[in-house]
């Protein structure tokens, strides 16, 4: 498995962030992990990366329910960014609201990125599979 350059974790729940990070540490090879408490902080971070280092994240773990800017609002802004590479975005949520799944399908169709829908909790055994970067 090749080494992943950059992973983003966007979630306001510190325990979830801790968990994902711990699983990635033991299961996946990567260079950097950046974490953001809400969508707004994350989109600002990505815009900054685009302007400076151009090292865009290959895999993003994205929570839906967050203050200030939630997962959907983040996606809305992210998919219009001038990113040619196909980014893997794993939506990670505890929501079972069908409306959320509909939203996911909507963005999946709308974007050239690979978007997946995952329900919490994520098992250590699954983490490697969903952290394989998109082609």
């Amino acid at each position: 498995m090749r080494k992943i350059n950059s992973i983003f974790i966007i979630d306001d729940d510190p325990i979830t962030v801790f968990g994902i990070r711990k699983m990635l540490d033991t299961n996946v090879e990567f260079k950097t992990i950046s974490t953001y408490g809400n969508g707004k902080l994350a989109i600002d971070g990505i815009k900054k990366v685009l302007n400076e280092t151009k090292v865009i994240p290959e895999v993003i773990f994205l929570d839906i329910n967050m203050p200030i800017m939630d997962g959907w609002q983040f996606l809305e802004e992210f998919i219009v960014l001038p990113i040619e590479e196909k980014v893997r975005i794993n939506i990670v949520t505890s929501s079972i609201d069908p409306a959320d799944y509909e939203n996911f399908k909507h963005y999946n169709n709308k974007s050239h990125h690979l978007i997946t829908f995952n329900t919490k909790p994520i098992k250590s055994t699954e983490i490697a599979a969903i952290t394989i970067p998109a082609e």
Binding site: I15, S95, I96
Partner: peptide, 24 residues
């Protein structure tokens, strides 16, 4: 109902995840 399930699920998911870590 969605609020309840979402909020309870997010906590139980955390429990489940943390316990998995603790065991190993």
């Amino acid at each position: 109902a969605h609020i309840v399930s979402h909020n309870l699920r997010s906590h139980t998911a955390n429990f489940s995840m943390l316990l998995e870590f603790l065991v190993s």
